[in-house]
Design a protein around this nucleic acid. Structure first.
Length: 242
DNA sequence: ATGGCTACGGAGCGTAGA
């Protein structure tokens, strides 16, 4: 079973990329972030045509998360956050969740403290999945380690001490970062960031102790980041034996 | 040089992304 997590930076602007992803990899589950569209305007039929059932929580212009699955979706729940930043469901015999952690804008600004509080609350919320087979994918907007950000000694937004401490709390609560050595997942649109490999590893899959044994392998889908009109994030994909 | 690029909303350019 293949599971993808992908910050699309507008699903409506990424339909061609979605098509390539679906045809090239046929993942059973796709977790989306930053769909940036209200639910009634979500391109539901386009995605259904590739064989997916869909669960969405959107809002106007910003945020927005979704779960696409070739298997039935049950127990759909997006109550954790008021903003459209989180959705979970039971599908294919396991729980999956898609999360879009706030960006934080700049260290020590109000949005930064909102991000830290969001992470703290989220780690607490995840305790409900401690004993489940559960795969969490998303855009965490944090590079957990120095090697996750291309700039030596960088400690700005996504690489600050408090953000890294929050992610360490997530690990300490039993969630392993399964693609820790897979490389960068985000490159700025500016200054030919991708071509120069000026990247950040912001997108991650986390699995609890009970789920880790079914993990087979994972990688960053660089070929999707190379397409025309790409998202600034590459999808990440993992395969599980389940 | 506090920009650079892209998408959104909505019809200018401001806001957000990270």
């Amino acid at each position: 079973m293949k599971i993808v997590s992908w910050n699309v930076n507008s699903i409506r602007a990424r339909l061609e990329s979605f098509k390539v992803l679906a045809e090239r990899y046929s993942p059973e589950v796709i977790l989306l972030q930053e769909t940036r569209v209200e639910d009634h305007l979500f391109p539901r039929e386009f995605i259904e045509d590739y064989g997916y059932n869909i669960a969405i929580k959107g809002q106007k212009a910003r945020n927005g998360v979704a779960i696409c699955s070739k298997l039935p979706l049950e127990e759909i729940n997006s109550d954790f956050a008021e903003e459209a930043r989180y959705i979970e469901a039971f599908t294919g015999g396991l729980f999956v969740a898609s999360v879009y952690i706030p960006n934080g804008q700049e260290v020590d600004c109000p949005q930064y403290f909102y991000k830290l509080k969001f992470l703290e609350n989220f780690i607490e919320y995840l305790k409900k999945f401690k004993e489940e087979i559960f795969i969490l994918g998303g855009d965490f907007n944090v590079g957990p380690y120095p090697q996750d950000i291309y700039i030596d000694g960088y400690d700005g937004i996504a690489g600050s001490l408090k953000e890294r401490e929050a992610i360490a709390m997530l690990r300490e609560s039993g969630f392993k970062d399964m693609l820790e050595t897979a490389g960068y997942t985000w490159w700025s649109y500016r200054q030919r960031g991708f071509k120069k490999d000026n990247g950040f590893r912001l997108d991650q899959f986390y699995m609890n102790k009970k789920t880790q044994p079914i993990f087979k392998e994972g990688k960053v889908l660089l070929d999707i980041r190379e397409l025309e009109r790409p998202s600034d994030h590459a999808p990440i994909m993992c395969e599980i034996i389940y």
